[in-house]
Design a protein around this nucleic acid. Sequence first.
DNA 1: AACAAATGTGTGTATTTTACACATTAAACT
DNA 2: AGTTTAATGTGTAAAATACACACATTTGTT
Lengths: 247, 247
Amino acid sequence: MSLNEENISLSTPVKTLKNIQTEVKSSGNIAVSVDCVIFGFDENKLKVLLIRSDLKKYRGKWSLLGDLIKTSEDLDQAAHRVLKERTGLTNVFLEQVHGFGSVTRHPAGRVITIAYCSLLNINHYKLKILDNEVHWHHVKNATELAFDHQEIFDICYKWLQKRIQEHPLGFNLLPQKFSLRELQNLYEAILDVKLDRRNFRKKFFAMNFLTDLDEMEQDVPHRPGKLYEFNFKKYKLQKKNWVGIDF
Amino acid sequence: MSLNEENISLSTPVKTLKNIQTEVKSSGNIAVSVDCVIFGFDENKLKVLLIRSDLKKYRGKWSLLGDLIKTSEDLDQAAHRVLKERTGLTNVFLEQVHGFGSVTRHPAGRVITIAYCSLLNINHYKLKILDNEVHWHHVKNATELAFDHQEIFDICYKWLQKRIQEHPLGFNLLPQKFSLRELQNLYEAILDVKLDRRNFRKKFFAMNFLTDLDEMEQDVPHRPGKLYEFNFKKYKLQKKNWVGIDF
DNA sequence: AACAAATGTGTGTATTTTACACATTAAACT
DNA sequence: AGTTTAATGTGTAAAATACACACATTTGTT
């Protein structure tokens, strides 16, 4: 059997714009939201920003930060808006992860949500938690979330673990200047593994994306390490196209 | 500065279910659709199933197969429904890839779409293209699609190229029994590279997920190769957790 | 019987990954 | 000031993996 690229058609009737507008409107009883899994790194632990559920049914439970999207904004814009409203930050790392659309996922009706991951440098001078119902949680304590937010969180966390090994996202969680120890702590916290210090350093030096700032850590209770910054420009230029089969 | 896990709250007012229902309803002027990028493999080429746009504005252009989702179905269900309606097939490989929500992406109003990738074995005995406006296109000829479908297709194609190197998806595009040559052709077609035959075979044999069926290809105009099948069970058991930093 | 076109197989080399130990530095403590 | 503590900084050998590469074998075709 062979696929046929040359089928001649019986035809579906061509629809006018008006036809479709009618369909679109009559299907419009579905709401769409974004939910942000906002990660931060502090005290060598990976943290996630959660808010107390504002819904009676889930009273006492924690949930992700989200909101219904407005008709006038893109998905990404909506996610950035949520971030801005909750943390005061703009220009933060944000990436879409997955859409969740189970019919029964929201008690108030049909709400499809698009999950985003965001990575914040918690030392950012502008960061302010604008709502005191919002708290940072160690990821290990992020359990029993409201709605289907546990599932969303779990998937986003796994996404982060995988993604950070392939793309230099992690630097968004650190101050611009960081020591290699901080970087390694970050990886160890996110991946939940112990890594060999010498091999870790070798690896990153070999990549050649770290700029040695010729500065030292300050106010550490031990021998200070050198500070580096990540050279995103150089990275973008050299990004390689990996080919290798590896299940 | 240190993150504070112990904030005490000023508080947001708790909302009742009714409050939220009202919000959800009033925001319900957004429609949601799924669009399927359906890949097939034939004549050593990667193909994609496209339909002529049913919208006047895009008359003559090709577009992905999609539909508005119904209030009563999950996202995944909707995608499976589209597949069934278009190809007659159930139980096919299907995975969500990305949501697209630009405000202006659809001329008939605000429609957010969730893109899915599907991989079909085109030799599947049940496959029937039910609508003759539907055609298989070599992926290289999938250009200038209607709506934002070019962007969606491009992203899904890249997704496939990456995904197939990390997960054994490709077998969904082949008959259950296949030769190593067919397998290599598949990889070469999807990744658009030439691979070394000996290393390719070594690689797959080393993985140890191919079952030698002790059967030979039939009706080939040259020395027939052995037939294998992929052992999904064994794969699932042995799936490894990769740790390696590699940008 | 000769030819065409593919299958099937192994080795040496380069590269990458891993395991592993000791001297050095600066701050903190006495 | 000297000692202690806790981290930084550095290299090498062994193992595993990836890569380049050529020839004999099998089957169908002429």
